[in-house]
Write a protein that binds this DNA or RNA. Structure first.
Lengths: 351, 351
DNA sequence: CTGAAAGCGCTTACAG
DNA sequence: CTGAAAGCGCTTACAG
């Protein structure tokens, strides 16, 4: 393995200059820099991470703690994000160490990890409403970035999508097609994103002057069977007048809804419109659904690069207030949404 | 953070002695050692990994490469192993870095990882028959341990279960119950474990003088639907005389078999005996199956500690020949196996 | 059994 | 714009 010393000898420079040239210090002259870069490439130089870390006092490792869940589709989501995040962090010379937790205390695993490992920071996932983790870490001065946001106006770094807009945009599309009875199959209420989606949904429905009976806002694990069970009960008409459109938290949920409609002999989109939020899970292609699924689209894995970038910036001293990004999901209209059926334009009557 | 220096000052010793005491060098006196250990605990000393790694020339990171699969149950298995393995390696001061690969060349990702990262070694998973990875890594002198074994008498370190015995033991149990028509739903043939299980199955059946028609040895992804589909076709009798017992590669496969039996109005174990190999996946409890499932039992996660231990030993110079362990899976007899139905004791007639 | 010293490969004030 | 030097916190021959 070539070292800085090797390059410095090769070029008759000091290791200090070689180090500065390679690290982009502005005071190094252009020709010197390119000579150094050439030599580094020629000798196959790779910085020794341990030496860099020892010299800078950083460990180069960031932690992430995951809750083990019974639910398999969560594992799949997690797996996708994990691999992408690992790659994005690696590209920035950061190692990700993972810890699995099954306990009830949300902050205990962080405390444990902090005292066991030398960590430069954390990536927080799955924000819950009233999440205690940000407060815990901020009190200890530990840098972190959150995937999503747990608070309306956070004092910490985060990257997420506008979940209110996800609902508002979906309702907007359906309303423009004449739908008045729109039901929601939401994510589990402990997650902050689900609260935001529900708030957006209620606000948009209220703005359209369409009240929603409590029975038509439901939630569950993000699975096909959640979608199937709820849709079956709603579409059978047992809970009251059938919705003409259903908003789904995830694409597997939408798959269940489509199956329920099929089983009941309903045609999509003639009898029912379906919209889902699409996290772009591997192996699930809403465009290949039958009918192709209308979605709000925001790949989870697209968050990984920004998260890694923000964490690096944060570790380099950027203030949290600068490191807050909310992306708007795109609305992709496909074949699962259509005009409200004739005669079904009336909203629910709330007693 | 306390350092060796802090301890040495506290105790009036040299850092060298402190280092030796903490690292278990035999030449350090007992009282000195315990004084040092006390002081270390009192000061909350944690070794600086970067410094250790720089001094020893080891990176402290080992790599693992996973193939991304469409199949979700594989993800789940992988997830379980990954988290346990990470913990076991961390307990031995090793970081695991993960890389995901989707390409066709089995060795290319290793070459890439080797040139990108400073790695001390690898953990290899999912051995295939004729796996080129061991040869590739051995030629480069890169230490690794394999989970399972790709070759009959490997020249490398590995930890696995006796897959031949898995089949032999299962067939033995069924034969003792009088079964003669035993079918096999195996793992996918590209994996070495599946080849071993099939060989064991054939050998055991031959030993019992029970030939098996080709149609009754099948394979597929380790899913419920694989089990359901194959069992449905076999038990309907379309493929010839029904098997009276089915051996399943995994517990999800067995779940599918049980469902097929139920759909056909067959009772287990009265009409059909079912045995599966149980990797002890999270969230799948063969004891809670209905009926409770008879299995060969070998938790995948139990391999993690031995793998970590062997890798450490290997990195410390232990020769591969010393680091080869084959565990025998336990046979757990539950309610899904019973005596062969009266009148069904005759074997298949092979033309 | 213990210590003094060199070295691992970087980074970064401090001088010039 | 560049260099000499100290230092990050360990480990480990080499002496004694």
């Amino acid at each position: 393995m070539a070292t800085l010393k090797d390059i410095s000898v090769e070029l008759g420079l000091s290791v200090a200059t070689v180090s500065r040239a390679l690290n982009g210090f502005p005071e190094v002259g252009a020709k010197t820099r390119s000579r150094v870069q050439d030599a580094a490439a020629r000798l196959g130089y790779r910085p020794n991470r341990s030496a860099q870390r020892l010299a800078t006092g950083r460990s180069g490792v960031v932690g992430m703690i995951v809750k083990l869940r019974a639910d398999m589709s969560a594992d799949q989501t997690f797996f996708d994000v994990l691999t992408t995040l690992t790659a994005e962090l690696a590209a920035r010379d950061l190692d990700l160490v993972l810890s699995v937790d099954q306990g009830d205390d949300p902050v205990a695993p962080y405390a444990r990890m902090l005292e066991r490992d030398l960590l430069d920071g954390f990536v927080l996932n799955a924000p819950a409403t009233g999440d205690p983790r940000p407060g815990f870490l901020m009190a200890r001065g530990v840098p972190f970035v959150m995937h999503g946001q747990a608070d309306p106006a956070p004092g910490y770094a985060f990257f997420g999508i506008d979940n209110t807009a996800v609902s508002v945009d979906s309702v907007g599309l359906l309303a423009s097609l004449g739908h008045a009875r729109i039901a929601l199959i939401n994510g589990e209420p402990r997650f902050a994103f689900a609260a935001e989606r529900e708030a957006g949904f209620r606000a948009a429905m209220t703005a359209e002057a369409r009240a929603v009976p409590a029975a038509f806002i439901a939630d569950g694990p993000p699975t096909e069977s959640t979608g199937y069970t709820l849709a079956l009960s709603w579409l059978s008409g047992r809970a009251g007048p059938r919705p003409t459109a259903i908003l789904c938290a995830t694409t597997p949920v939408a798959a269940g809804v489509l199956r329920a409609a099929r089983d009941l002999g309903l045609s999509v989109p003639r009898d029912l419109s379906v919209v889902a939020h699409d996290d772009a899970l591997p192996n699930i292609r809403p465009a290949h659904f039958n009918p192709a699924l209308t979605v709000t689209h925001a790949p989870l894995r697209d968050a990984c690069a920004p998260l890694a970038e923000m964490l690096i910036d944060h570790l380099n001293g950027a203030p949290a207030a600068r490191l807050q990004t909310v992306k708007r999901a795109g609305l992709i209209v496909r074949a699962s949404t259509g005009p409200v059926p004739k005669g079904e334009e009336h909203p629910w009557q709330i007693p």
